[in-house]
Design a protein around this nucleic acid. Sequence first.
DNA 1: ATGAAAGCGCTAACAG
DNA 2: CTGTTAGCGCTTTCAT
Lengths: 335, 335
Amino acid sequence: MKKTTIYDVAEEAEVSLATVSRVINNSNVVKKETRERVLAAIARLDFKPNQVARGLATSKSTTIAVIFPQSIFARVKDMISGIGDTGRTLDYNLMMYTTDELGDEDPVDDVIERVVKARADGVILFNNDKIIQELELMKKYNMPTAVIGYKASDEHLCSVFVDAHNIGYTLTKNYLDKGIDDIVFLKPRQNLLSLDDAISGIKDAFKDAGKKFDDKKVLSVSTHFSQNYPFFMDYLKENKPRVVIAGYDKEAVSMMYAAQDSHLSVPDDIEIIGMVDTTYAKMARPSLTSVYLPVYDMGAIAVRLITKMLNGEGIDNREVNMQYSINIRNTTKLL
Amino acid sequence: MKKTTIYDVAEEAEVSLATVSRVINNSNVVKKETRERVLAAIARLDFKPNQVARGLATSKSTTIAVIFPQSIFARVKDMISGIGDTGRTLDYNLMMYTTDELGDEDPVDDVIERVVKARADGVILFNNDKIIQELELMKKYNMPTAVIGYKASDEHLCSVFVDAHNIGYTLTKNYLDKGIDDIVFLKPRQNLLSLDDAISGIKDAFKDAGKKFDDKKVLSVSTHFSQNYPFFMDYLKENKPRVVIAGYDKEAVSMMYAAQDSHLSVPDDIEIIGMVDTTYAKMARPSLTSVYLPVYDMGAIAVRLITKMLNGEGIDNREVNMQYSINIRNTTKLL
DNA sequence: ATGAAAGCGCTAACAG
DNA sequence: CTGTTAGCGCTTTCAT
């Protein structure tokens, strides 16, 4: 029950294997009649060219490795769609590697070793707390790389991201202009945007207003609802921030429920803003104001950038800054 | 800047390439001293065996293809973790293929063609409305397959699923026993369990109680909150079901909000039960009673099943029935 | 215990 | 326009 090979097709079509190869690679030097004979043979034998062999011969695997922290995964559904659709369109295979919460050996080194062995043509990485280390490794193996959510570039590196500094600055300035400076930031561990940039944006807004943003107003939080809710309940006993900006919708919603259960009115006593604009934001009650990120497009563009690097196409912009927007719903009133 | 190959290592270690091959494949015939010399050379040259070449030589790609409908994706975060972790542990690469919402040619044929060309050793499929067709194709190419969420098996096919009939039956009987028979079922298009089985379970419970479950009580629904909510608001104008069982948490939550906004008390006027037990269930207010599925384990087991088939290991159970449980929260009171 | 050599299925010069 | 031939990097007999 052997797979049919290019030789079988050659024999069946009474041509040499080189001709079959030309046909399946759409070479335009093959005589129409010959091509048709070959095509017929291919159909008859249900021949599927072996990509592994092709990969060996061409030193290309037409494969892109996508490496993501599992914790980031839930929020990137649409991004995976963007990556998947674009990969399919451009005829690339996608290998999937998850990192996070492993425990054993160093996941990053281990995963990248696998990627190198698999001879992926390129790799897509997501912003995470080890991104710098990861980028260095990719550089060492000079593997064409696209990062999502972290601004960086060099000869083999492109990125697609959203200007988190600008988000932080804009939101903060809005409230400062209205005389509100009691702002708290919730910082989950991983995200699709650089939360440190968002924080520096907040700080800069304060600075421009002649004030100072206290680092204590940055709360590092888990992404587990069951852990956050009690933590926030506790927090709200001592603190009554007027505005909460969360790095991710889920924490925003937890905070909102905690606020309500602490007899704070949303948005009258406390305004809450999430980020990424997932279904959590839409389904919350009241619905959550959130910063929308074009995740599908970010995924699609990441793939496109990789393939451009692989094909040696010119890339005018190696650091693609995507537009975000703010979807105002019912947890804010002064935005 | 060529990648170092097995030849380079052989030269560096002053042995033949066959010996190097033996070392990297842990053959135990190599003399200890030689092995060490080779290992040193490998380290010195930072040699990473080319899996593509190895794949050609062995006719194995050590790759498993995972094919999922994008719409199912959001709810399987933990399942992907299970698949990813287990794949890594067993040293398999995972290729990712998304289907759904494409529009162009037939996605299933197209994707499976890619999988065959990529010479994946096996494939993981998810229950979806084209699963039968997909399984037939995999069988045609006699590609070892594991399905998640759909019960089936044959020589090259294993499955891991949850007994949806039992879920439907159990939930329904509970209410019928308490004299409640005004039950509605919300049926989203795709799911990790066979919703038709769940429905037949409901019907059987009615039958056993000497009653009949009206097909009109099955509502086919979208998974988009923005579409469901108004639909449910409308529905509740004419209908006041006492119990709503939803095939997925998101729709359950939509229905719950619609009920509240229709001045129905949850759970006093209407009880609502979701399935899969995602974060949506935990974050809803009131929190949603939901049927928990062991998704991480289902993913892990699917990978394990595939590798067992690939290694010719005996498989005692080719249709793995996973335990579900019902997490009772605040949208039910008679459960 | 190690080496030589054939072959996995395909691509890519090079001839003709 | 088509065929011949030499690899791609590795595994795997078969000798030694």
